[in-house]
């Protein structure tokens, strides 16, 4: 076996993807070849690293330990190559995952700032508004809003996004502007990916919690599609304000029920391999982090566009009182 590193790399990919054929394809070999190389590695190590079942491939306990060490070695090798080049130049393939909106509106317009420094780095984008399977899809870096994967992945908070309702001025002129959440039942509702399966829209204002069951007239599995539907005057959409920033600034969309909060979610950049992440993944994660810092200024601008109240309770605005008689 001339290349112990190749077999370690292959083993790591098989473990991460749960499939000899996917890992083999990634590394340009057939499934039987991949299987043979890993079997040889197991023979050399002297222990079974993987169990093969009809449902796929799973790590043994020894395999799990071995994977962590092997990935650390592979990352160290990458790191050594990277340092030896001395230019800080990154090479190879980086697989990143994020929603279409994040890519179109935040990352792609700024990406050349990063890639101009690394002409030999290829980046594969996996754009999906649903949650990705970081390990199965072989993702190096993911941007995710909301809940985090519970794994060895390292997550770094890049910002807070808030949800809001919006519609086109033409739609509101035709259908009227809702005053309170219950008015939404008289409106045409556009439901994007975040709202699918959720039947209630929940709001907060001055400490009260109000929620309304809405029925989507138009249901879209992509946030960009939902935003476009609203711009086209088809109805009222619920979306992350960030994903509609351009439209809100240009007034092709205006916020609906702007003083009713729909809640916030944290956005994170995730290094799927955790501490064993390769140099390009770390660098990309730092790049995304810095770009989001810059974008926060624009977020504030959107919040100023229409008043967005802070969570709380204004005593001087009115005089709440308890009485016993």
């Amino acid at each position: 076996m001339n290349d112990r590193f190749l077999s370690l790399q292959l083993f790591a990919r098989v473990a991460r993807t749960g499939s000899f054929s996917i890992a083999g394809r990634e590394m340009g070999m057939s499934q039987p070849t991949a299987s043979r190389i890993v079997a040889a590695l197991e023979k050399k190590v002297g222990v079974a690293l993987l169990t093969r079942t009809t449902r796929g491939v799973a790590l043994t306990e020894a395999g799990s330990d071995y994977l962590i060490r092997a990935e650390a070695i592979l990352a160290a090798l990458d790191e050594a190559d990277h340092a030896a080049r001395g230019t800080g130049e990154l090479r190879g393939v980086l697989r990143v995952a994020m929603s279409t909106s994040t890519a179109l509106r935040c990352v792609l317009p700024r990406l050349s700032r990063f890639t101009d420094l690394h002409p030999n780095l290829r980046i594969e984008f996996v754009l999906n508004d649903e949650k990705q399977d970081l390990i199965g899809d072989g993702i190096d870096v993911a941007l995710r809003v909301g809940s985090l994967p519970d794994s060895s992945a390292i997550a770094r908070k890049v910002g807070v996004v808030f949800r809001t309702l919006a519609a086109s001025p033409a739609y509101l002129a035709r259908a009227g502007t809702p005053r309170v959440p219950s008015d939404l039942t008289n409106h045409s509702i556009i439901v994007g990916p975040a709202g699918r399966g959720v039947e209630g829209w929940a709001f907060k204002k001055d400490g009260k919690a109000t929620s309304v069951r809405v029925e989507g007239r138009f249901v879209l599995n992509g946030a960009e599609g939902a935003t476009a539907a609203a711009v086209s005057g088809l109805g009222i959409v619920s979306n992350g304000a960030f994903g509609m920033m351009k439209e809100l600034e240009s007034r092709s969309l205006v916020r609906v029920l702007p003083d009713w909060e729909m809640g916030t979610a944290e956005a994170h950049v995730i290094l799927a391999a955790g501490r064993a992440a390769k140099p390009s993944a770390r660098a990309f994660s730092d790049f995304v982090y810095s770009q989001f810092r810059e974008l926060e200024a624009t977020w504030d601008r959107v919040e100023r566009l229409t008043p967005f109240p802070s969570i709380g309770f204004a005593v001087d605005a009115r005089a709440p009182l308890e009485v016993g008689t």
């Binding site: 309170v180 219950s182 039942t185 919690a209 109000t210 929620s211 069951r213 009115r318």
Partner: peptide, 21 residues
């Protein structure tokens, strides 16, 4: 549940007419 409004500030209540839509 088609509509819910809960307010710990008991001096504020939703308008009954808002139920009608």
């Amino acid at each position: 549940i088609a509509f819910a409004e809960v307010n710990p500030d008991y001096t504020h209540r939703p308008e009954p007419s808002d139920l009608l839509p």
